[in-house]
């Protein structure tokens, strides 16, 4: 039996409208799943990503198991599941850990769009400052679905 859809028809319509802003670069969503670690959440995460990717032919999905695809998961810097990497023209270093529902879902959709355009909505001053960083920056944003 197929699992019930996570996205409602109105969610889908809203995301399709958002996806009209997709840019020139195809987007790849790499899903990190490990049944033995967090089976239910990994299945839910994978289903959500596939439903989102199904709304545009510009979005592809690949599923990796960090226990099997160790080197690739390590290259993505992913050691927790469920997780998602959002890539556009390059790997921008955008990761989601946990199932991005609720507020995080909006963020996932926005990340897909900015990865596709490659054009962040930031002030010039910010972009200049970020371009001259002395060392790598790792931003961790903790959130909850509601």
């Amino acid at each position: 039996m197929a699992a019930m859809a996570i996205l409602t028809a109105s969610d889908e319509a809203a995301v399709r409208t958002e996806f009209e802003r997709l840019g020139p670069h195809p987007v790849k969503l790499t899903v990190f799943s490990q049944e033995l670690v967090a089976g239910d959440l990994c299945r839910q995460n994978e289903q959500l990503v596939r439903e989102v990717a199904g709304l545009s032919d510009r979005i592809s999905v690949e599923v990796l198991n960090p226990a099997i695809d160790r080197e690739r998961a390590a290259a993505y810097g992913v050691d927790l599941v469920p997780a998602i990497a959002v890539e556009g023209a390059r790997d921008y270093g955008i990761r989601f850990f946990g199932v991005p529902l609720g507020y995080e879902f909006t963020n996932l959709v926005d990340s897909i769009i900015v990865a596709s355009t490659g054009e962040p909505a930031l002030e010039e001053e910010t972009k200049t400052a970020l371009g001259g960083l002395a060392r790598p920056v790792h931003i961790q944003v903790f959130s909850t679905p509601t």
Partner: peptide, 25 residues
């Protein structure tokens, strides 16, 4: 948080992790 992801796209050296706190206590 939208800003973090946009900053990651703006700069090669920025990585943005969005973490569902409840799933990773």
């Amino acid at each position: 948080m939208r800003l973090a992801q946009h900053m990651a796209v703006a700069a090669k050296d920025v990585r943005a992790d969005c973490i569902e706190a409840g799933e990773f206590p």
